[in-house]
Each structure stands twice: as structure tokens, then as C-alpha cells.
């Protein structure tokens, strides 16, 4: 009887010892609470190609963005594949709070001044909120005259764009964005419509920690009589070095202002009307 008791005790003791020898790291693993964290770096820049992303600047961050679009590469050697012509947009974009960013820019194409405000409504979370959502409103003023208009006063040079960006980082490498867009142009030709709806589709695919492929397409939902204008398509490479983001891209639009590239892109991408361009973004 006593023998059995002893054996039992010994068994109990050894089993307790085995339990005690479980790895301390395993204990910590089970103690680590599941925390809901914000999914960061859905996109690395405020621009994908021409259009904005859900990204806003954090409070007190100032971004200086320089963008170039050259002429059409099918201009041939005579135009040095488009590099003879260039238009440029400079902008300063500032994070007022972590959620609100405002910016002003000037595009040499049609001499357009633009200003925008962006508001980050939702952040994607690891658990819970599946998407990040940012609202965007901009106003653009063309200062170059448009001779197609008889009476091209100040009022007719103004256009407005309102967008909603809905983005999700699908996995470590792939991020997608939908961008329902409304553009209002104060004055248009008879063949055009003042109000135009479009749906933007964008993606970023990470090739390495510092390089990604970006794609952007704006599908115009409003039909116009004129067939002069095409949907904007762009594809580019993104290179990131701490503080700087470089974009090298090909697109069929010349303008870098929403009204311009969403509603008045003239190039036929698959016909070779492609503009080489780059964005250089520096955050201070």
C-alpha cells in the first residue's frame, strides 16, 4: 500500500516538475494579449501615379512633391521620345493633424493652381475595420486661357473634385484602392458635361522592402458626346529610401491635377500615347 502511495507521489512530483519546466517564453506567448493595431504603409506615398491614395501626412509633417510629365514617347527621335517637352507640378502638402492634410500646388500644364484637403476617416486595423477610408476635396484654377471658350472669365476656369478613397492592404505585399470620384467643371464645351463621375482603381505590389509596382486606372462613368478623351491609365515603379519616395511611371495623361487627368486625358495608352514621368516626394 505504502509502495503504491510512494509511486503515486513520485509520479505527481515528476509531472509537476515537467509542468514547471515549460519554457518561460511559452508562458509569455500565452500572456501576450491580442492587440488591435493599425495596418500601416497601405501605400507609401500620397500619390499612386497621378491620383491620391488614402495616405495622409501625420501632424506637422511637410511634404514637398515635385512631379514631371514628359511628352509622348511615340513622338519619336525628333521629340527625343517626349523628353523635349516637359510639364511640372510642385506642391507643398502639410499634415495639420494626423488625420487632416492640406496642400497647394501648381502645374505648368494649363498653368493650373490647385489646393486640396484630405481627411482620413478610417484606418485599417488588424482586427475589426477592414479598410482605410479617406475623403478628398480639391479646387483647381486654370490661369492659362482656353481659346475654345468665347468668354473665358475667372469663373469658367475653376473646377472641383471630390473623391473617396477606400483602400485595403490585402496582405504583406498587395494593397488595393477604389476611388469613387466626382468632378465638377464650371465651364465645358458643348460636347462635354459639367459633372462627371468616375471610378478609380489602384494597386501597389511590393517587390521588396523598398520597391513596388503601382497601377492606376480611372474609369469614367459619365458618357460624353466627345470621344477626344480617354480613361487615364498609369503604371509605375516606386522606390523608397527613408524620407524620399521616387515614382517612375508611364501614363497616358499629361496633367497632374484631378480635373485634368481624370476627365481630360487625351492619350491612347495602347496606341502608344504614353508619357514618361516621375514624382519625387520628400517629407520633412
Amino acid at each position: 500500500m505504502k509502495r503504491i502511495l510512494n509511486t503515486l507521489l513520485l509520479l505527481l512530483a515528476t509531472s509537476a516538475m515537467v509542468y514547471a519546466q515549460e519554457d518561460l517564453l511559452d508562458i509569455l506567448d500565452s500572456e501576450q494579449e491580442e492587440v488591435e493595431t493599425t495596418v500601416s504603409s497601405i501605400f507609401k506615398a500620397q500619390r499612386l501615379i497621378n491620383g491620391h491614395t488614402v495616405v495622409t501626412r501625420k501632424a506637422k509633417e511637410l511634404e514637398f512633391l515635385i512631379s514631371h510629365r514628359f511628352g509622348r514617347i511615340n513622338g519619336g527621335i525628333d521629340q527625343f521620345f517626349g523628353l523635349d517637352q516637359a510639364n511640372i507640378r510642385f506642391s507643398l502638402e502639410y499634415g495639420i493633424t494626423d488625420k487632416i492634410t492640406a496642400g497647394v500646388g501648381r502645374n505648368s500644364f494649363e498653368k493650373v493652381y490647385d489646393g486640396f484637403v484630405k481627411y482620413n476617416l478610417l484606418e485599417q486595423k488588424t482586427t475589426g475595420t477592414p479598410v482605410a477610408v479617406t475623403g478628398f476635396s480639391s479646387m483647381a484654377i486654370r490661369t492659362a486661357d482656353n481659346f475654345a471658350f468665347d468668354d473665358d472669365d475667372f469663373n469658367s476656369k475653376v473646377s472641383y473634385t471630390h473623391q473617396l478613397f477606400i483602400a485595403r492592404k490585402m496582405n504583406e505585399n498587395l494593397s488595393l484602392q477604389l476611388s469613387p470620384t466626382f468632378v465638377h467643371r464650371n465651364k465645358v464645351l458643348d460636347t462635354q458635361k459639367n459633372d462627371l463621375l468616375a471610378l478609380g482603381i489602384g494597386s501597389r505590389y511590393k517587390l521588396s522592402t523598398r520597391m513596388a509596382i503601382n497601377f492606376e486606372y480611372y474609369y469614367r462613368l459619365t458618357e460624353e458626346i466627345t470621344t477626344d478623351f480617354k480613361d487615364a491609365i498609369g503604371v509605375g515603379v516606386e522606390i523608397e529610401t527613408g524620407g524620399h519616395v521616387f515614382h517612375l511611371q508611364l501614363s497616358n495623361s499629361r496633367s497632374m491635377v484631378e480635373r485634368g487627368f481624370i476627365t481630360e486625358t487625351r492619350g491612347d495608352f495602347f496606341g502608344g500615347d504614353i508619357h514618361f514621368g516621375f514624382n519625387i516626394s520628400r517629407v520633412f
Binding site: L25, T37, G243
Partner: peptide
């Protein structure tokens, strides 16, 4: 015996952009 276990994303930086770079490009927290 001693053990420590921490989430890299719990590191907070003064500059948010630096924090993003830290997680995304250096320690690859995901």
C-alpha cells in the same frame, strides 16, 4: 531563468514616419 517577449510595433518614435519606416523597411514587423 528570465524571458522577454514584445511586439515590435509597440515601439513608439517621436516621428511617425520614422516609426513606419522602422516597421516596414527595417525590422519588417508584419
Amino acid at each position: 531563468q528570465v524571458a522577454v517577449d514584445m511586439l515590435m510595433k509597440s515601439f513608439e518614435f517621436e516621428k511617425k514616419l520614422m516609426q513606419e519606416h522602422f516597421n516596414e523597411n527595417y525590422v519588417e514587423s508584419d
